[in-house]
Amino acid sequence: MSVTAITPDYQKHIEFRDLEKNFHGNRLVYVHWEEHLSFCSAIAFPLPGAMPFSAFVDEVIKPHYAAHPDAGNIDWAKVVWMIDGVKTMPDMSKSLEENGMRHKSLVRFWTPGLNGFKGSAS
């Protein structure tokens, strides 16, 4: 045990607050549009692991980034994806789970040619 505690059985009392089972059948997914820092950080969603990746794109990603002037110009076929640090081409017809996404996975994506307002990554 790393933590210095006065309680010898500290480990037995740990309350893991964000276990997958606490999210009512969903898992946490974070997504971030690179070079568009108008969105100040990655955004978080509780989603079912069985959700198709295409639905994740159409129903979650697209509407939440729609406010940005670049959003309408995204060529989704050319988007570069990274899941948990690995560049990858997700299979749109398969589920989040089948695309290797676990609880608290981070999805980052780049939109070639689009890098924010006047190229400022904003």
């Binding site: 974070y30 971030h32 820092l37 108008s38 969105f39 100040c40 950080s41 990655a42 955004i43 978080a44 969603f45 939440h64 406010a67 002037p69 981070l106 924010g116 307002f117 006047k118 400022s120 990554a121 904003s122």
Partner: peptide, 28 residues
């Protein structure tokens, strides 16, 4: 270089009646 363009973009959006909000919750 990095921040003034962000404010100018958002100012323009305000002017156009599209004040920028983030409607998702952030990763902490």
């Amino acid at each position: 270089k990095y921040y003034r363009p962000r404010w100018e973009m958002w100012a323009q959006m305000e002017k156009d009646g599209k004040r920028f909000y983030n409607m998702a919750l952030p990763q902490l």
